[in-house]
């Protein structure tokens, strides 16, 4: 079985400025890795490369054995949708549709029957403990609830094998940050998937299986 994530020698540069060089990372199934580093160290840039939103200048990234480098944007988008779940500092929920529809949105766009997609969304919402919010508008959610809905959206697809989260607790208070961290790492272990969580919060890092300091591998 292929590991959820393999990164080998990637380099991220903006013009002449090299932000990340020679970075490697291996994430096993059921493992959560906290990615730490000071602001500007390239955490978000690295995550964008992992999910295929950006291309690294050099190196290789594989998600469950599927290459994310040296392939077309369409192939990266396919992998992003099928294999990766994402959660960000801001939940990025669509205010125009309700909570269940937000969670089901990629399934709907893949042509799943509406009833099936919404049923899968409810299961995912139940898994993160917010099934009761399914029919609500997102404008009425608290910050913690919105992040849980965002996590439910990231985990809704059965085929996903890697969770990528960028400062998912940054806008939450301490209690909610800890709860969400426990929930994420617990779900990762339970589903046997991998996770890369960029964070500044030591409490979040403490709940992960491993911590990678980005400054250790960065050439400025």
């Amino acid at each position: 079985m292929q590991p959820p994530l393999t990164v080998e020698g990637i380099e991220i540069a903006y013009g002449d400025q090299v932000l990340v060089k020679g970075f490697g990372l291996h994430v096993d199934a059921g493992e959560s890795v906290a990615l730490m580093g000071p602001s500007g160290s390239g955490k978000t840039s690295l995550l964008h490369c992992l999910v295929g939103l950006s291309r690294p200048a050099a190196g290789e990234i594989r998600i469950a054995g599927n290459p994310m480098t040296g392939v077309s944007a369409a192939r990266r988008a396919d992998a992003r949708r099928g294999l990766i779940g994402t959660a960000y500092q801001t939940p990025d929920l669509l205010a125009e549709v309700n909570v269940a529809e937000n969670v089901a949105i990629t399934l709907l766009f893949e042509g799943a029957a509406r009833e099936d997609a919404l049923a899968a969304a409810r299961r995912s919402l139940a898994a993160v403990g917010v099934e009761h919010l399914a029919e609500r508008g997102v404008a009425n959610l608290s910050g913690g609830e919105a992040q849980r809905v965002s996590l439910a959206r990231a985990l809704v697809r059965e085929s996903m094998c890697l969770l990528v989260a960028d400062e998912p607790t940054a806008s939450l208070d301490g209690t909610n940050a800890v709860r969400l961290s426990d929930l994420m790492t617990g779900m990762v272990r339970e589903r046997g998937i991998g996770a890369v969580i960029a964070t500044h919060d030591q409490r979040v890092a403490d709940r992960c299986d491993r911590v990678v300091e980005l400054r250790d591998v960065t050439v400025r």
Partner: peptide, 13 residues
């Protein structure tokens, strides 16, 4: 647009 991309939609979609 980034909201939709982050939600998992493709560029074309």
């Amino acid at each position: 647009r980034s909201r939709l991309l982050r939600a998992g939609l493709r560029d074309g979609e």
